[in-house]
Computed example of a mutant assay.
Amino acid sequence: MSPLIVTGTDTGIGKTVFSAGLTAALGATYWKPVQSGLEDATDTETVVALSGCKTLPEAYRLPLPASPHLSAEDAGVEIDLAQLEIPQVDGPLVVEGAGGVMVPLTRSTFYLDLFAHWQAPIILVARTALGTINHTALSLMALRNSNCSVVGVVFSGEAVPDVEKTIVQMCDVPHLGRLNVLSEITPETLKEAFAAIDIETIRGAL
């Protein structure tokens, strides 16, 4: 089975919560290659708590909550892209990026470069708030110009049908569903909310 990459249009838009739900729905393994920020629960710890699924250790754990290239420099290390090859696992693997498509890993490499190298199907998570049409269209353009395979867009937030429809039509991209705002995020509420996600289309990309 192919790995699935989860990236987003920005940071703090629900990629990790979506990744947890996706990992649980697929019975997959989860991997966060680079973790920036260790003061609060890491993304891997959040996914474990919400999915109960198997996870792989991060290739890099960097204390500073910032762009990976800045976190690495603060820690006195340089991210070696050779350490970021996708691991081989039994069954599906959900791989979560950091922030958005154009987040730097080093002073010369964006996450987009890594996605293009991996050549694995990508799910783009986009918030439904103001500005999302621009951010989503730019992210999709960058991915497609780098010959990345985009499975579709998952929206995060309150329903804004006209915005979602505009993105789907103008960007010619599948709508994979929307995760509503959860007042309490638990394994149970996430599983219930995930009924709105087109998991069959996602499975078809594996």
Rank of each mutant, 00 (worst) to 15 (best):
80 D>A: 15
140 L>M: 06
35 Q>K: 01
140 L>E: 02
161 P>N: 11
28 A>N: 01
154 V>K: 10
108 S>K: 14
151 V>M: 07
52 G>Q: 08
111 Y>H: 11
149 S>H: 14
38 L>E: 07
55 T>V: 14
148 C>K: 09
47 V>M: 09
107 R>G: 00
147 N>H: 15
159 A>K: 12
152 G>A: 07
142 A>E: 12
132 T>W: 05
133 I>A: 04
128 T>W: 07
35 Q>H: 04
127 R>F: 13
163 V>Q: 09
120 A>K: 15
80 D>N: 14
34 V>P: 03
56 L>D: 08
54 K>C: 00
53 C>F: 04
65 P>M: 12
85 E>V: 08
54 K>A: 00
60 Y>T: 03
113 D>M: 15
92 P>H: 04
64 L>E: 12
96 E>S: 06
64 L>D: 05
86 I>M: 14
130 L>F: 09
38 L>M: 11
130 L>R: 04
144 R>Q: 14
76 G>M: 02
75 A>M: 07
87 P>V: 02
38 L>T: 01
135 H>K: 06
82 A>M: 08
93 L>R: 03
130 L>W: 07
90 D>C: 00
97 G>D: 10
122 I>N: 05
152 G>R: 07
94 V>F: 12
88 Q>P: 11
77 V>C: 05
140 L>T: 07
53 C>Q: 06
163 V>C: 13
144 R>S: 15
78 E>F: 01
138 L>C: 11
92 P>W: 04
104 P>V: 09
120 A>T: 05
118 W>M: 12
49 A>E: 09
106 T>R: 06
35 Q>S: 06
131 G>H: 10
133 I>F: 06
65 P>S: 08
123 I>Q: 01
110 F>V: 00
123 I>D: 02
130 L>E: 15
74 D>H: 13
37 G>D: 10
104 P>Q: 13
32 K>Q: 04
156 S>V: 08
31 W>P: 14
71 S>T: 05
60 Y>W: 12
101 V>R: 04
30 Y>R: 07
154 V>N: 12
37 G>K: 11
97 G>L: 13
66 A>S: 10
68 P>W: 00
69 H>V: 11
141 M>D: 14
120 A>E: 14
90 D>F: 12
57 P>H: 02
55 T>K: 09
164 E>G: 12
104 P>G: 05
121 P>C: 13
79 I>K: 02
67 S>G: 08
159 A>N: 10
121 P>V: 15
103 V>L: 10
93 L>M: 09
96 E>T: 10
140 L>N: 04
63 P>C: 05
86 I>P: 09
164 E>Y: 04
83 Q>T: 14
164 E>H: 09
125 V>C: 06
85 E>I: 07
80 D>W: 02
122 I>A: 03
81 L>H: 03
118 W>D: 03
28 A>F: 00
50 L>E: 01
130 L>K: 08
135 H>C: 05
59 A>R: 02
137 A>I: 13
131 G>E: 12
68 P>D: 09
36 S>Q: 04
